[in-house]
């Protein structure tokens, strides 16, 4: 029986000039191009990246990759310097083994920071 490869989910935000919305395809293409450029075609094929979601308004998204290539994918994301010819930072927020726990961790964090701001 073939053992299914474990996945990892990375929550990230894009920080871009004037906070204008970015197209989802541009975000995904720039990350995959960065993996290809840094680690080559073999690693890109094994990384199994997929953009689960990206909200152009909040600039936050979740990317899936394989457990083995997590660090390489994160490094490639950190090395992205522009998307659609606009300077950008891809800020890694959290990593988890399931989307559910990732979402609850992000929600918890945003609630606690909101409470901190309110006080």
């Amino acid at each position: 029986m073939v053992k299914e490869e474990k996945s990892r989910y990375i929550a990230f935000e894009t920080i871009i000039e004037d906070e204008s919305p970015l197209e989802v395809s541009f975000v995904f293409n720039s990350i995959s191009r960065s993996i290809l450029s840094l680690f080559g075609e073999v690693e890109a094929s094994q990384s199994g990246i997929w953009l689960i979601e990206y909200d152009p308004e909040t600039h936050q998204g979740i990317l899936r990759c394989t457990h083995k290539s997590l660090e390489k994918v994160q490094t490639a994301m950190a090395a992205v310097s522009s998307i659609d010819n606009r300077p950008v930072i891809i800020h890694l927020l959290k990593t988890s083994g399931t989307i559910r726990s990732l979402r609850s961790a992000i929600e918890q964090e945003s609630t606690s920071s909101q409470q901190f701001e309110d006080t």
Binding site: T75, A78, A79, L92
Partner: peptide, 18 residues
């Protein structure tokens, strides 16, 4: 040289490892 070239501590660590 501009604010978009800054990186967070985790990202800096990953790039240094690279």
């Amino acid at each position: 040289f501009n604010k978009y070239e800054l990186r967070g501590p985790h990202e800096m660590q990953l790039l240094a490892k690279l």
